[in-house]
């Protein structure tokens, strides 16, 4: 059981969350080129090791989180809100 510390809810089982994929993918503007969209939709670096990824706290506060996790060991590092406003609010309050 991977344990993820949601900044809002605290440490929880990963089964409360839904995995959301590579968080380093930069989705282009809606009117960007098909080439840019192809990159974002289909191509992944898929690293063996540290990975920045989205987890959605589906059965919790519903926040989308950016989690640093090692794909080889599943060790979880930093967990932050994906929403920059929330992220900054937490950072300032610490």
């Amino acid at each position: 059981m991977i344990r993820i510390t949601c900044p809002f809810c605290g440490e929880r089982d990963h089964s409360e969350f839904s995995y959301g994929g590579d968080a380093t993918v930069a989705y282009p503007a809606l009117d960007a080129s098909v080439e840019d969209w192809n990159e974002a939709v289909y191509l992944r670096s898929n690293p063996r090791g540290p990975h920045k990824e989205y987890w959605h706290h589906l059965n919790g506060c519903r926040a989308w989180l950016i989690v640093e996790r090692d794909t080889l060991t599943h060790e979880v590092g930093k967990v932050e809100f994906a929403h920059p406003g929330l992220r900054n609010a937490v950072r300032t309050s610490v």
Binding site: G20, A23, Y54, H56, A63, W64, F81, A82, H83, P84
Partner: peptide, 8 residues
């Protein structure tokens, strides 16, 4: 997801 990650 869209509101929290792409269009905050």
């Amino acid at each position: 997801e869209l509101l929290q990650t792409r269009w905050p």
